[in-house]
Computed example of a mutant assay.
Amino acid sequence: MALSFAGLCLAGQGAVIPAKAVLAQVLLERAFAKSRSTGAPVKAWPWADAVPVARISVPRLGVSEIILSGGSGEALAFGPTLVPGSAPLGQNGTAVVAAHRDTHFSFMQHLQPGDVVVVETTDGDRASFRVQGGYVVRNDQFAIASRAVAPTLVLSTCWPFDATTQGPWRYVAIAHAQSSR
Protein backbone atom coordinates (compact mmCIF):
# COMPACT_ATOMS: atom_id res chain seq x y z
CA MET A 1 0.00 0.00 0.00
CA ALA A 2 2.76 2.44 0.97
CA LEU A 3 4.71 1.63 -2.20
CA SER A 4 1.61 2.26 -4.33
CA PHE A 5 1.08 5.63 -2.66
CA ALA A 6 4.76 6.55 -3.14
CA GLY A 7 4.51 5.54 -6.81
CA LEU A 8 1.42 7.71 -7.29
CA CYS A 9 3.18 10.66 -5.65
CA LEU A 10 6.20 10.30 -7.93
CA ALA A 11 4.00 10.00 -11.02
CA GLY A 12 2.10 13.10 -9.94
CA GLN A 13 5.32 15.06 -9.51
CA GLY A 14 6.42 13.98 -12.98
CA ALA A 15 3.19 15.31 -14.47
CA VAL A 16 3.48 18.74 -12.83
CA ILE A 17 6.00 20.28 -15.25
CA PRO A 18 4.13 19.38 -18.47
CA ALA A 19 0.81 20.42 -16.89
CA LYS A 20 2.32 23.73 -15.76
CA ALA A 21 3.62 24.30 -19.29
CA VAL A 22 0.16 23.76 -20.83
CA LEU A 23 -1.64 25.94 -18.29
CA ALA A 24 0.98 28.65 -18.65
CA GLN A 25 0.44 28.73 -22.42
CA VAL A 26 -3.29 29.36 -21.91
CA LEU A 27 -2.57 32.26 -19.55
CA LEU A 28 0.20 33.55 -21.81
CA GLU A 29 -2.11 33.46 -24.87
CA ARG A 30 -4.56 35.66 -22.94
CA ALA A 31 -1.80 38.07 -21.91
CA PHE A 32 -0.48 38.16 -25.51
CA ALA A 33 -3.95 39.00 -26.85
CA LYS A 34 -4.43 41.71 -24.22
CA SER A 35 -0.99 43.16 -24.99
CA ARG A 36 -1.94 43.27 -28.68
CA SER A 37 -5.25 45.02 -28.00
CA THR A 38 -3.96 47.53 -25.42
CA GLY A 39 -0.50 48.17 -26.84
CA ALA A 40 1.00 47.74 -23.37
CA PRO A 41 2.88 44.77 -21.87
CA VAL A 42 0.60 42.52 -19.81
CA LYS A 43 1.80 39.93 -17.29
CA ALA A 44 0.09 36.55 -17.47
CA TRP A 45 -0.07 36.41 -13.64
CA PRO A 46 0.75 39.10 -11.05
CA TRP A 47 4.09 37.64 -9.87
CA ALA A 48 5.46 36.90 -13.37
CA ASP A 49 8.94 38.25 -14.07
CA ALA A 50 8.37 38.36 -17.84
CA VAL A 51 5.74 39.42 -20.35
CA PRO A 52 4.75 38.01 -23.75
CA VAL A 53 6.66 39.73 -26.56
CA ALA A 54 5.74 37.55 -29.56
CA ARG A 55 4.23 34.36 -30.87
CA ILE A 56 6.41 31.91 -32.78
CA SER A 57 4.91 29.27 -35.04
CA VAL A 58 6.14 26.55 -37.36
CA PRO A 59 3.22 25.80 -39.70
CA ARG A 60 4.59 22.49 -41.03
CA LEU A 61 4.80 21.12 -37.49
CA GLY A 62 1.60 22.73 -36.18
CA VAL A 63 3.57 24.50 -33.44
CA SER A 64 2.64 27.82 -31.83
CA GLU A 65 4.30 29.17 -28.66
CA ILE A 66 4.33 32.51 -26.85
CA ILE A 67 7.81 34.05 -26.47
CA LEU A 68 8.56 35.80 -23.17
CA SER A 69 10.86 38.70 -22.36
CA GLY A 70 13.86 38.47 -20.13
CA GLY A 71 15.39 35.03 -20.43
CA SER A 72 15.23 34.28 -16.68
CA GLY A 73 15.04 30.77 -15.30
CA GLU A 74 11.48 31.42 -14.13
CA ALA A 75 10.42 32.61 -17.57
CA LEU A 76 12.05 29.55 -19.20
CA ALA A 77 9.88 27.33 -17.03
CA PHE A 78 6.80 28.79 -18.71
CA GLY A 79 7.83 29.24 -22.32
CA PRO A 80 10.46 30.25 -24.85
CA THR A 81 12.33 33.45 -23.98
CA LEU A 82 14.03 36.16 -25.98
CA VAL A 83 17.60 36.08 -24.71
CA PRO A 84 18.76 39.43 -23.26
CA GLY A 85 21.03 41.33 -25.65
CA SER A 86 19.30 39.87 -28.70
CA ALA A 87 18.06 42.04 -31.53
CA PRO A 88 14.33 42.80 -31.47
CA LEU A 89 12.38 40.03 -33.19
CA GLY A 90 11.98 40.67 -36.91
CA GLN A 91 14.42 43.59 -37.01
CA ASN A 92 17.99 43.74 -38.34
CA GLY A 93 20.34 41.77 -36.14
CA THR A 94 20.15 38.38 -34.49
CA ALA A 95 17.29 37.50 -32.18
CA VAL A 96 18.03 34.46 -30.01
CA VAL A 97 15.11 32.52 -28.54
CA ALA A 98 15.75 29.70 -26.05
CA ALA A 99 13.44 27.10 -24.50
CA HIS A 100 13.49 23.69 -22.86
CA ARG A 101 13.83 20.64 -25.13
CA ASP A 102 11.21 18.62 -23.25
CA THR A 103 8.39 21.17 -23.39
CA HIS A 104 8.17 24.25 -25.60
CA PHE A 105 11.02 23.46 -27.98
CA SER A 106 10.50 19.70 -28.20
CA PHE A 107 9.53 20.33 -31.84
CA MET A 108 13.13 21.32 -32.68
CA GLN A 109 14.08 17.66 -33.14
CA HIS A 110 11.76 17.69 -36.18
CA LEU A 111 12.83 21.07 -37.58
CA GLN A 112 14.32 20.80 -41.08
CA PRO A 113 16.19 23.13 -43.40
CA GLY A 114 13.61 25.00 -45.46
CA ASP A 115 10.95 25.06 -42.71
CA VAL A 116 9.23 28.40 -42.27
CA VAL A 117 9.15 29.98 -38.82
CA VAL A 118 6.68 32.85 -38.34
CA VAL A 119 7.12 35.46 -35.62
CA GLU A 120 4.28 37.83 -34.70
CA THR A 121 5.09 40.51 -32.12
CA THR A 122 2.68 42.11 -29.66
CA ASP A 123 2.75 45.30 -31.73
CA GLY A 124 1.37 43.39 -34.72
CA ASP A 125 4.56 43.08 -36.79
CA ARG A 126 4.93 39.74 -38.55
CA ALA A 127 8.10 38.23 -40.02
CA SER A 128 8.74 34.91 -41.73
CA PHE A 129 12.07 33.14 -41.48
CA ARG A 130 13.40 30.13 -43.39
CA VAL A 131 15.48 27.61 -41.45
CA GLN A 132 18.94 27.24 -42.97
CA GLY A 133 20.05 24.39 -40.75
CA GLY A 134 21.07 23.42 -37.27
CA TYR A 135 24.11 22.26 -35.35
CA VAL A 136 25.21 21.06 -31.93
CA VAL A 137 27.60 23.18 -29.86
CA ARG A 138 28.86 23.33 -26.29
CA ASN A 139 27.09 26.02 -24.28
CA ASP A 140 30.43 27.66 -23.43
CA GLN A 141 31.42 27.87 -27.12
CA PHE A 142 28.15 29.27 -28.41
CA ALA A 143 28.67 32.52 -30.33
CA ILE A 144 26.27 34.29 -32.67
CA ALA A 145 26.97 37.13 -35.10
CA SER A 146 24.89 39.75 -33.33
CA ARG A 147 25.35 42.44 -35.97
CA ALA A 148 23.53 40.70 -38.82
CA VAL A 149 22.49 43.17 -41.53
CA ALA A 150 19.17 41.40 -42.02
CA PRO A 151 16.73 39.90 -39.51
CA THR A 152 18.10 36.57 -38.29
CA LEU A 153 16.44 34.17 -35.86
CA VAL A 154 18.35 31.66 -33.75
CA LEU A 155 16.47 28.97 -31.82
CA SER A 156 18.39 27.19 -29.06
CA THR A 157 17.60 24.25 -26.79
CA CYS A 158 19.43 21.60 -24.82
CA TRP A 159 20.76 18.53 -26.63
CA PRO A 160 20.48 15.58 -26.95
CA PHE A 161 16.73 15.79 -27.29
CA ASP A 162 16.01 12.59 -25.34
CA ALA A 163 18.38 13.29 -22.42
CA THR A 164 16.94 13.34 -18.92
CA THR A 165 19.72 15.32 -17.25
CA GLN A 166 21.34 18.68 -17.88
CA GLY A 167 24.43 18.78 -20.01
CA PRO A 168 26.74 21.21 -21.78
CA TRP A 169 25.37 20.67 -25.30
CA ARG A 170 22.91 22.88 -27.18
CA TYR A 171 21.13 22.40 -30.47
CA VAL A 172 21.01 25.66 -32.42
CA ALA A 173 18.89 26.32 -35.52
CA ILE A 174 19.54 29.36 -37.71
CA ALA A 175 16.79 31.00 -39.78
CA HIS A 176 16.99 34.03 -42.05
CA ALA A 177 14.20 36.45 -42.87
CA GLN A 178 12.36 35.69 -46.06
CA SER A 179 12.16 38.62 -48.42
CA SER A 180 8.64 39.80 -49.13
CA ARG A 181 7.69 39.57 -52.75
Rank of each mutant, 00 (worst) to 15 (best):
V16H: 13
W159A: 14
P84C: 10
L3W: 05
V53P: 01
M108R: 03
G85E: 12
A95P: 06
C158Y: 05
M1S: 09
Q112M: 15
A177P: 00
A145Q: 13
L3P: 00
T165A: 07
Q141D: 10
V63S: 04
G93Y: 02
Y171M: 12
R55H: 07
D125K: 13
L3I: 08
A148G: 00
V172A: 08
A87S: 14
G93P: 01
G134T: 02
V131M: 03
A40C: 09
K34C: 11
I174W: 12
V53A: 04
R138E: 11
T121I: 06
G14E: 14
Q178N: 04
F32C: 04
T122G: 01
P46C: 07
I67S: 03
T38M: 08
S37C: 07
V63F: 05
R138H: 08
C158H: 02
A143T: 12
V42C: 08
L28Y: 13
D115H: 09
I174Y: 13
Q25A: 10
G114D: 09
V117K: 09
Q25F: 09
T121V: 08
N139G: 11
L61Y: 00
A40I: 06
F129G: 07
V118A: 14
Q91S: 12
R55S: 13
L68G: 06
Q13V: 12
G114P: 09
S146D: 10
F142S: 05
E29Q: 15
E29W: 15
G71Q: 00
A44L: 09
A95K: 06
L82Q: 11
V154S: 07
Q13C: 14
F5G: 00
D162R: 06
G62H: 01
R55V: 15
L27R: 14
